[in-house]
Amino acid sequence: MRHRFSSITEDLLQLHEAMRKRWPGLLRVAIALYDEQKEMLHTFIKSSPDTGLLNHYSIKLQEVPSLVKLAESGEARLIQDLEILKDHHTVHSDAIAEHFKSSYTEPFYMAEKLLGFIFYDADEVGYFDDDLLEQIQNYSRLIESLIVSEMLPVKALIGMIDTAKELTNLRDSETGKHLIRVARFTEIIALQIADKYDLSDEIIEYMYHYAPLHDIGKIAIPDNILLKPGPLEDAEYDIMKTHVDEGLKMVDRMVNHFSFQQIHHLQMLKDIIGDHHEHYDGAGYPKGKKGNEISLVGRITAVADVFDALTSDRIYRKAMPVDEVIAYMKAQKGKQFDSECVDALLVNLDTVLEIIDKFKE
């Protein structure tokens, strides 16, 4: 029998529903992922009666010593009375102590590296008896397997593309740090507009992972065009524009050859690749889409990519001063760019500038 691929959030909701049939007081199951590069812990997926609780929340792992201890030891933590968290004074501890009475937390890993934590929260003090704890440990192994199986194909796809770039000696201005910055800017924009567009933490997580793959089709562009130190002639520019379709073909080949059809949000990756050179007014390429015909993630990535490109040195020009880039982005609102996406980036300018400074070439 064939089954459709459900999202990890749908899987978690089903698991939680099954658990609550026996333990109705188990009100919340949540997963937070750890980003080693940023040293940040951030919300990923959750099943909770309060859908607004700790949405889009992140914190430096080192600011939560109790979780650092769990990560280092690999052991679980049981708190039968959450009153003790009220002295910790973090957003997370205050929210949990306000809404729940007891909790159980486990760290989980991939290839011996911390991947994140699973949190179980109940509405009664002392709710976690031996029977529930035994079952939770079984559910935790299942949840860990779901998340690892979700992440491995994504990481494998990204690794394959990175390897292809190395093997083809791809050498253009899109350095590793450029890709990091584009991913960060994409995340900033997505978080800023998340409530309006109902973007879950799971969706934003995939945007963050997929944004650096926006220009993978450049592997297919000849070096004499890709690395040309001056302006491209019309015929050369036409060839350069084919990198969008080449990128889409590359994804399709990898999906088919390596049976990656189960990768969730694969259409998101295709939208990033296919739409990030479209212009809001319809003057972009490859299809001349306009306005909301362009996917939201494509509109977001376009702003992130161009802002970073203009503030970075490229083989054919020097970086523009930040104030000039800001003026350009504002002038292109409603033309090249979605106005909301530009505003979402610029309202977080201090964070954007910190990222530029941290990931300098």
Results as ranks from 00 to 15, higher is better:
Thr90Leu: 02
Leu61Gln: 02
Arg141Thr: 09
Leu70Cys: 06
Val125Gln: 12
Pro107Glu: 02
Glu75Met: 12
Phe117Tyr: 12
Lys101Trp: 06
Glu72Ile: 09
Ile59Asn: 06
Arg77Lys: 13
Arg77Asp: 06
Asp87Met: 06
Leu67Gln: 10
Tyr104Gly: 10
Tyr127Asp: 04
Tyr127Ala: 15
Lys60Pro: 11
Asp130Met: 06
Gly116Gln: 00
Leu115Ser: 15
Phe100Val: 00
Lys69Ala: 14
Asp87Gln: 09
Lys113Leu: 07
Ser103Cys: 10
Met110Gly: 13
Leu85Lys: 00
Arg77Glu: 11
Ile59Tyr: 04
Ser66Ile: 09
Ile79Glu: 13
His99Val: 07
Ser140His: 15
Ala95Val: 04
Lys101Tyr: 03
Phe119Gly: 11
Asp87Gly: 06
Lys60His: 15
Lys60Asn: 15
Gln80Tyr: 01
Glu112Trp: 08
Val125Leu: 09
Leu115Ala: 15
Phe108Gly: 08
Glu98Ala: 07
Ala122Gln: 04
Phe119Thr: 01
Glu144Trp: 07
Glu144His: 10
Ile59Gly: 02
Lys101Ile: 00
Asp81Trp: 03
Lys113Gln: 15
Leu82Ala: 13
Ser102Phe: 00
Ser103His: 02
Phe108Arg: 00
Leu133Gln: 11
Ile84Arg: 03
Tyr120Ala: 03
Phe119His: 13
Met110Cys: 13
Gln135Lys: 12
Ile96Cys: 06
Leu82Asn: 05
Gln137Tyr: 09
